[in-house]
Design a protein around this nucleic acid. Sequence first.
RNA 1: GGCCCCAUGGUGUAACCGGCUAACACGCAGCCCUCUCAAGGCUGAGAGCGGGGGUUCGAGUCCCCCUGGGGCUACCA
Length: 483
Amino acid sequence: MTAPVRVRFAPSPTGHLHVGGARTALFNWLFARHNGGTFILRIEDTDAERSKDVYTQAILDGLRWLGIDWDEGPDKDGGHGPYYQTQRLHLYRSAVEQLLREGKVYHCFCSPETLSAMREEQMARKEDPKYDGRCSCLSREEVEKRIAAGEKFTLRLRVAAGENVAWNDLTKGELSFGSHLLDDLVVVKSDGFPTYNFAVVVDDSLMKITHVIRGEDHISNTPKQILIYRALGYPVPQFSHIPMILGSDRSRLSKRHGATSVIDYKEMGFEPEAFRNFLALLGWSPETGAEVLTQDEMFKLFTLDRVSSHGAIFNMEKLAWFNAEYIKKMDGATVLNRCRPWLEKLPGFPGEYDAARLEKMVGLYRERMKTFNEIESQIGWFFAEPAEFDAKGMEKAAKIADRAVLLTELIARLEAQADFSEIPLEALIRGFAEEKGRKVGDIIHLCRLGLSGRTATPGLFESMAVLGKPSSIRRLKTFVTRI
RNA sequence: GGCCCCAUGGUGUAACCGGCUAACACGCAGCCCUCUCAAGGCUGAGAGCGGGGGUUCGAGUCCCCCUGGGGCUACCA
């Protein structure tokens, strides 16, 4: 029987949750859920300079927005905590003590200046820059003397020459590195803090992580970490390095390609499920070939062997398409709710409209928007009478003979119309056009322009029904004086 | 520079352990529907699988080389 699956997402709280991190979290989450395992959230906040509490919060908020829930983490103790690295310092310390006791780690007194000078010399000689191990043979007495003298030091892992490091990556296949290019890596910094690679190994081991799923930018960290696992005598987990998310020029996605924070997409009017669905398909595809997937379908279908091995460009159009697909399937009340933040910015909102009418109104745009923020630039005319009329529309209107007379007569008919709902309105206007020997289109376009100031809106009759009789007539009367 | 990863239309992917007239989706174009805009329906353009060598009856699929792109090269995570 194999150990129960335990995976983790381990962000540094140095910024908002970004797209790449979100997808790493997503893949870990999907993998855990597919296997009935545990998904853990760990905050890697050992960089005191850049780590901020607000960012921890922002990352949690981002994950929550996406609907990615964790089983263990900062706010959810699962018996493997604490879940902040800064609260785990004692654990790293005891791991280091073990290595020290076993002589697997040694004191290095080389200053950063010495090290960079060494690096430059090696580069000049066209050698690979690496630590030359000069402190590895210091006598016990000398080490103690220099520590007593207050000299600063780091702790380095002894890496045996010629040791080969290989693993079978779950998405990349067989990967191996010769350790001739691995030097004696620093495990504890001179300020006493563990290095990233060391802390990660200690944490992943203690948290019983079975599968490390992370971005492929970590491939070259992996041999170093495996060396640390070996030194510590811990079992090595499985690794899966997933491809990067790229910008349109195929370089790593960054601010200059557009929004990189997940939360920006919320503000642009994306539905979290749609965004998450899109993200899941970036570098992964289910065997069914389906694209729009429910959460349960993703859980069922997600496997690492179907993760592709090359980077994927983040494509806004496709994202927008996913979003539109989700909007189409939403119920009216939800669409209204999602649009609310933008509706509230509109002058005159909500006017005389009650919730039911607002829902109908927004419903008119359901298939006309890809993101919720688009509502803001489209729907305003329902709340405020048009101050001006589309110039192109006016040009066309000017070609209609006797337009003012025609419209005045139509207004009279509308005033006499008791049932101001879609079907009767359509009958009335079509009948009117026929009676007058006019093209329905002309009448409709004229009305649309008069009511909204626009040449493009949802269907006229349904729009008028929502607008209501008094407002419709008032607007058309104003319009008669302008044409 | 060194090490590592990757390479199917503009984009995301599919093509089971080699048999394809290379599939799907987004986007794009055209047509239909139609009161406009969308949505929807239909049709189409777009890759012969980065290039070159092998292996094989047969290669997008296996091997080698090259090219291109990306990542990593810290007492940062």
